[in-house]
Design a binder for these strands. Structure first.
Length: 922
RNA sequence: GGACCCGUAGCUCAGUGGUAGAGCGUUCGGUUCACAUCCGAAAGGUCAGAGGUUCGAGACCUCUCGGGUCCACCA
């Protein structure tokens, strides 16, 4: 006989229990005796600087549930924990902090110092999230803890980058990207969120045609109007060119017909701004229109915007609208226009499309995988799911996954922030000497340029200014063959260009010959006539091989480790690309980089592919899809066999939890108040994968009550059992109640086992909850008080029940296990799952049911007739199963205080008590 | 525009073709005897609506209504 405290106080045990688990070494599968098949989970790494929120708690509870279940089932369980450097998010946090505390920006510190400070901050706050993960009870292997920015993972990142580059799947290009002015960086397509917003929509007179726009400030240099080919209104204009009085002087506009213009939208006509719209950029590529940047990366208008240069977007819009108004070009303004404003998912500031030189992963480009297969990254990622190698729970997300994959564009992976994995790319030369501006030359003319040609004609303005330092590059190879400074910029119609200019080495006999020369270098779509305006650049020239030793050859070096010298020219002044990588690039390698890749480690061989990826459906695209894509490419393996997606936590009204609503619940406070076990139950029972669920304090309190019930079940047993011991095999039941509970236990144990293996955690938990409280506690324990002599059975049920509950409520079950069986039984977390189960006894279950019913009926009878608790009643029952009369004592003892005279009837259906059946009240 | 989810007791939600469920709340009753973080009872349902499939539908199919999410587009 042993006495436990009356109520379970989680605070008194949890820390100590976790310490015992950790010290046992069993979180590390190397220390598990089991030889079973490994079961691996990679913990979706929380942000290093984060604090535990309910989303984390959900994933920890579910993953720990799986880990503990399979560990008890004898599998070699590895759960790899870690944290994510969360590049933009972390940098933003630190920038904000530094600005508040010291009124300084990152530029005041310089890159190196700033990164050091961010890293320091991340390091110092990482301990916080670690201890909070422990507080939930997560049985992850801390000896294998990783960080996305640690040496091993950084190496994996560089290795993958280099491989992709060598396979031609990473390229650098000037493309329209999403640009966040506040963060000063690009964002991937899915890092942009949309907010519906009312804005002004301007109808502007653009020559004879009215166009609509919400962003007049980008329209300064628009010179192409797109209309639908079938649009009768504009039929006569198509293909025509005309002068249009516009924002900054007159522009020559032409009208092009293309089906992208929808007749119903606005006026059906639009001007295009290739530099500031994804669609327009595509059109510009299609038709060869010039891409002119109006808004720069600083959010201010560029010098191409003429007199508006230097104004920020907001000022420029005002000024330009004013200008348009003054010129009478505004037809009307729609004030009620609703459109989706693009905003940064990290900081909420507006995001604008601008052209920028960035690194991309080509998802649609064919490459050779292994010896035989030609495929694309997108195809690989689709196949992994379509082939069934990866199962998604719930499976409706398969459809979502395919849809997203189908829409996936090349992935912009470079970011202009400082904190993160630096792009493993070096340029031969330094920023000071290697000019930013480039002028490309066709291969055939390079020898002539090298021969001293210092004047070049172009029909597109590159906006070089006198004094600009320019690198001259081979357009095909992208290599620099010379350097120089612009000394003169002139404009002239082609027909007015002197046919023989001493600075322009080539001379022409006739205008036709000059025009032919132009046409050779521009696509056939360009209409080049004598009237076409050309820009004539004059410059100084120094060949690269002369300047090379100091300046570098400008070529790109992509390498895992920092190169000492340029493999192309031997130059030693190498400059690393300033960009860092999208944080999801490193997380996409998470399942295998954490196991030691690129080394061929034993862990990698043993534990990869991982068994399950458990995470919220909100990062199916951000993360899960990218892991599938990258792992398929790098390892030719899936990263995980099953994806289990949990829903989002909402408040009682179903609203998202947010700071502004103030409806958030702090999981740490809840653990403090109700215990980790109660919180875990509240998040597992009553929830289904893929569906959001509500969480509120009363719910957690309810499960706290259950945990306490479990405690008291064991407390009762220990008070009644002489010598508590763990019982592995089911003892022989003696009474009907014994047979009934043993049979029920078997049914529940099997159900729980089956449901847990089938990812149906809620149903398993519910069944176990109901059995524990409403069968075992409410009925069997009451009967045990009457019948006595239950030591063996109670010990057996206790032993097995604690195991079944352990995955859900590890703390209280471990405490109880220790209290009941002491140290000799070892830790509960490494016991074996119940396998030796009692027999199913259908007859006992069938016999017990009417007894239970009779008791309930009699209790109701007492209540209805207001029989005082002390009174004994005598009741005659008719048409009840004969078994009832054989269990007089049971019925009387279970708080009915009734003597039953039962008339047995084998054909009984329903038991009823009416006043007529009552013989007497005693 | 495309896709998806949800609608079941007052509230929060389970329910994988076979007798409508749980927790909380409400009402009534209970002072020792494991637990008031408890025990015993009760009330409470056109399973959003309409049609269909089936011996049988809360579940499967079609449509409608209401609430929500994601993606695409956004001149």
């Amino acid at each position: 006989m042993k006495e436990l405290p009356k109520a379970y106080e989680p605070k008194n045990y949890e820390a100590e229990i976790y310490r015992a688990w950790e010290q046992s070494g069993y979180f590390n599968p190397d220390n598990l005796k089991s030889a079973g098949e490994p079961f691996t989970i990679s913990l979706p790494p929380p942000n290093a600087t984060g604090t535990l929120h309910l989303g984390h708690t959900v994933m920890l509870a579910l993953q720990d549930l799986m880990a503990r279940f399979w560990r008890l089932k004898g599998r070699k369980v590895l759960w790899v924990p870690g944290t994510d450097h969360a590049a933009i998010a972390t940098q933003n946090v630190v920038e904000k902090k530094i600005f508040q505390e010291e009124k300084k920006t990152r530029f005041d510190f310089g890159r190196e110092e700033f990164v050091r400070r961010v890293a320091e901050f991340a390091e110092s706050s990482r301990g916080n999230i670690r201890s909070q993960i422990r507080a939930v009870g997560a049985s992850c292997d801390w000896s294998r803890e990783r960080y996305t920015l640690d040496n091993g993972l950084s190496r994996a990142v560089r290795e993958v980058f280099v491989r992709l580059y060598n396979d031609g799947l990473i390229y650098r290009g000037k493309r329209i990207v999403n640009w966040c002015y506040r963060c000063g960086t690009t964002l991937a397509d899915d890092e942009v969120e949309y907010k519906e917003q009312k804005a002004k929509f301007y109808y502007l007179k653009y020559g004879p045609i009215t166009i609509g726009t919400a962003r007049p400030e980008t329209k300064v240099l628009d010179k192409v109007i797109i209309v639908h080919p079938d649009d009768a209104r504009y039929k006569d204009y198509v293909g025509k060119e005309f002068d249009v009085p516009w924002i900054d002087g007159t522009v020559k506009a032409k009208v092009v017909a293309d089906k992208v213009a929808e007749m119903e939208v606005g006026t059906g006509a639009m001007t295009i701004t290739p530099a500031h719209s994804f669609v327009d950029f595509e059109l510009a590529q299609k038709y060869g229109f010039e891409v002119v940047e109006i808004v720069g990366p600083d959010g201010k208008l560029t010098r191409q915007a003429g007199k508006f240069a230097g104004l920020n977007v907001k000022q420029a819009r005002q000024a330009i609208v004013e200008e348009l108004r003054a010129k009478g070009l505004i037809e009307k303004i729609d004030e009620e226009y609703v459109h989706n404003l693009s905003v940064c998912y990290r900081c909420g500031a507006p995001v604008e499309p601008i052209p920028s030189e960035q690194w991309f992963v080509a998802v649609d480009k064919p490459f050779r995988l292994g010896w035989f297969r030609r495929t694309t990254l997108k195809k690989l990622a689709l196949k992994a799911v379509r082939s069934g190698q990866i199962k998604i729970v719930p499976d409706r997300f398969v459809k979502t996954y395919f849809q997203w994959m189908a829409n996936l564009h090349d992935w912009c992976i470079s970011r202009q922030i400082w904190f993160g994995h630096r792009v493993p790319v070096w340029y031969c030369g330094t920023p000071a000497t290697a000019p930013k501006l480039r002028m490309g030359f066709a291969e055939v003319v390079i020898p002539r340029v090298l021969g001293g040609m210092t004047k070049t004609y172009r029909i597109h303005d590159h906006y070089f200014k006198v004094g600009d330092r320019v690198a001259f590059t081979n357009s095909r190879r992208q290599s620099i063959f010379g350097y120089g400074t612009i000394t003169k910029v002139e404009r002239s119609a082609i027909k007015d260009i002197p046919l023989a200019d001493p600075l322009h080495k080539a001379s022409y006999k006739s205008l036709d010959e000059l025009l032919a020369a132009f046409r050779r270098h521009y696509p056939p779509t360009e209409i080049i006539t004598g009237e076409t305006e050309a820009v004539l650049y004059t410059y100084t020239f120094k060949p690269a091989d002369q300047a090379g030793a100091q300046l570098g050859c400008g070529r790109i070096i992509v390498a895992v480790d920092e190169p000492k010298q340029c493999p192309h020219c031997g130059g030693i002044k190498l400059t690393q690309d300033p960009d860092t990588l999208d944080t999801w690039f490193s997380s996409s390698l998470w399942t295998f980089s954490t196991l030691g890749w690129p080394e061929r480690t034993k862990d990698l061989k043993t534990y990869h592919p991982t068994s399950v990826m458990e995470t919220g459906y909100d990062i199916l695209f951000f993360w899960v899809a990218r892991m599938i894509l990258m792992t398929s490419y790098v390892l030719k393996q899936v990263p995980f066999r099953t994806v289990y997606l949990h829903g989002m936590v909402r408040d009682k009204q179903g609203r998202k939890m947010s700071k502004s609503l103030g409806n958030g619940i702090d999981p740490v406070a809840m653990i403090d108040k109700y215990g980790a076990d109660a919180l875990r139950l509240a998040m597992i029972i009553g929830t289904t994968p893929g569906n959001d669920f509500s969480l509120y304090e009363e719910k957690i309190a309810g499960y706290r009550n259950f945990v306490n019930k479990l405690w008291n079940i064991v407390r009762f047993a220990l008070l009644n059992v002489g010598e508590p011991k763990a019982v592995a095999t089911p003892p022989q039941p003696r009474t009907l109640a014994d047979k009934w509970i043993m049979s029920r236990f078997r049914a529940v144990a099997e159900l729980v086992t089956h449901k847990l293996a089938a990812w149906q955690f809620s149903e398993a938990g519910e069944a176990l909850y109901d059995f524990t409280w409403h069968e075992l506690a409410d009925w069997y324990l009451e009967i045990a008080k009457l019948e006595g002599g239950k030591d063996e059975i109670l010990c057996y049920l206790l032993t097995q029940l604690l195991k079944l509950w352990h995955p859900y409520t590890p703390f209280v079950t471990e405490v109880l296990w220790g209290e009941a069986f002491g140290g000799q039984a070892g830790l509960l977390m490494v016991q074996s799952w119940p396998t030796s189960l009692p027999e199913i006894d259908k007859k006992a279950e069938a016999d017990f049911a009417p007894i239970r019913e009779v008791i309930t009926v009699l209790r109701n009878f007492r209540t209805e007739h207001k029989v005082p608790p002390t009174s004994i009643i005598k009741v005659a029952l008719e048409k009840v199963p004969t078994v009832v009369s054989r269990h007089q004592k049971l019925i009387e003892g279970l708080r009915t205080k009734a003597t039953v005279v039962a008339v047995g009837d084998p054909a009984w259906e329903r038991i009823k008590v009416s006043e007529e059946t009552v013989i007497s009240l005693g």
